[in-house]
Design a protein around this nucleic acid. Sequence first.
DNA 1: TTTCTTTATCTACCGTGGTAATACTACCAC
DNA 2: GTGGTAGTATTACCACGGTAGATAAAGAAA
Lengths: 134, 134
Amino acid sequence: MPSGKLRLGDLQLKILRVLWSSGECGVTDVHQVIGPAKYAYTTVATMLRKMEARKLVAHRVEGRRFVYYPLVREGAVTRSAAAEFVDRIFRGSLTAAVCQLLDSRDVSREELEALERLIAERKEADPPARPQGS
Amino acid sequence: MPSGKLRLGDLQLKILRVLWSSGECGVTDVHQVIGPAKYAYTTVATMLRKMEARKLVAHRVEGRRFVYYPLVREGAVTRSAAAEFVDRIFRGSLTAAVCQLLDSRDVSREELEALERLIAERKEADPPARPQGS
DNA sequence: TTTCTTTATCTACCGTGGTAATACTACCAC
DNA sequence: GTGGTAGTATTACCACGGTAGATAAAGAAA
């Protein structure tokens, strides 16, 4: 199953975010961005190596440094996480998922309207039963 | 701390679902429902004991059987999962989350319309300027 | 009573995320 | 050279989900 294991931990996500926004960077850079106070340098380095073993990132050598870059795209991760979320927690029911999303936090009127627009877009973009040509 | 550790694994979710729909039941019952072919009896039993240690379930003794019942409600689990999903993957952006949800699978027109209704409801239920809270 | 079956307990293992100290190594400055 | 420094490699540990075999104990059946 290729659509399988894209389940990431918190630290892994943080690291990937740095790589996504920087394109690539060294261990020290990553460490600086995610917070030297929160994590030891070696923690980040170890995690990066583990992530490389899992083919989430790769590195090239630049002088003495390892310059890491992501092998997975942000879209792939978020898409996979979204699909897994719906399947795992709501057994595939998207409406149940969104319903819970709305219940789980305060949603501003602006957000609600943005969501409305989002859905309206989808309705236009994907007319399922449309005998007449566009 | 309501925002505490309510992160559940796949098997734990399956087990909880059985307990939620049955109210309570013995280890054998759970095992039967989630699939004797997929899991060993002891796997379920062990997991139930681990979950009891984490206060997700509890049991009472009935003859020689352990009758387990849930200590967490389905709503609490799904709510917590939803909140964590948005925070973890989309750093709190609900619109980004819903957007990805819509992209991550085929959404029927019926579902889209159900979502529209869902949002319309929320808009009515939460008027923009209202100093009084419930 | 002896055996079979049900049921729970104990123990142990694996993978993985997370955490980090420690050790090695190569370079730079002196 | 020697010593600090920046960087990687090694090693180890914990927690937890998942998995299950082996074992024990309590009834039920023979």
